[in-house]
Amino acid sequence: MCDTCGCGQPENKVTITVPGSEPVDPREHTHTHGGITYTHTHDHEAGHTHDHGDDHDHLQSKEIIVGQDILTRNNLLAERNRGFFEACNILVLNLVSSPGSGKTVFLERTLRDMTGIPYTIIEGDQQTMNDAMRIKETGAPVVQINTGTGCHLDAEMIHKALKVLKPADDSVLFIENVGNLVCPALFDLGENYRVVIMSVTEGEDKPLKYPTMFRSSHLCVINKMDLLPYVDFDLDKARSYAAQVNPHLKFFEVSAKTGQGMNLWYDWLKNTRTLMASTG
C-alpha cells in the first residue's frame, strides 16, 4: 500500500528529478514500512496457528510503555538537515501556501531580481516537472520532488533531495512545498524560516481556517496585491486574523507579478544573510 494515501498503487511513489534527467529513486523503502506484511513465520515453528482465539491460554498479555512522539523520525531527520544547513551556513526557507497563491511566481521573481546570491531550489508537487522547469529557466539549480499522491514534503525527502542538489556553502535554499495549508504544517524540514503565502484572491480568514500553518510560520507574504482593487479581500482583517494566530509573524504585501512591495522582502533576505554571516 502507498504510504501517503493508502491507494495501493505503487506508481504513486516519491520521485526526485533534476530537470532533463531520469528520476532517481529517493527512498526505496518508502513502500516498506506501512506495507509490511507480517506472516508470523517466526511463530509457526512453535506449531500453532494464528486464529488468536480464546483457546490460546499459553499467550500472555503484556503492557509495553512506549511514550514516544509519533513524529520522532521526521523530527530527528529535520534536525539532521538543520545541522547540515547550519554547518554550511545555508539559509533555508520553506514556502507553504494553498495551491494557486503564486509561490512559484514569487520565487521566480526573487531569483531573477536578487542576483548575486547562490540559490538552490527544491520543488514539491504531487505530479509534473512544470515548476522545476520554470525555475530552471532562471538558471538556479533545482530538483523536483513528486510526492505522488502525498500531500506534503517531509524531512526524509529533503534529505534525499540534498544529496542530488548539493547546495553550496553560504547559499540560499528555497523549498517550495506542496500547495496545501494543512498537511505540511506538521512536518519540520529543518528550515530556518517557514514562509506562508496567501493571496488577495483567497478569503481573508485563511489564517483562522488554517491556524496550525500560520502559527508555525515566521513570515507571511500577502501576494497578488495588484488585484486588491478588484476583489473583496479585506487586507486589515487578513493581517489582524494572522496576527491573532501568530503575533510574531512578519508581513510582506507584494505583487510577485508587478514587483510591487518585493523590495522589502529582498531587504529582509539580504539582512538575514548578513546576520547569518556575522553570527555563523
Partner: peptide
Amino acid sequence: ELRIKSLFVNEI
C-alpha cells in the same frame, strides 16, 4: 501531543 503511550501485546 501526538504520542504513543503504550501497547498491550501477546507473547508466548
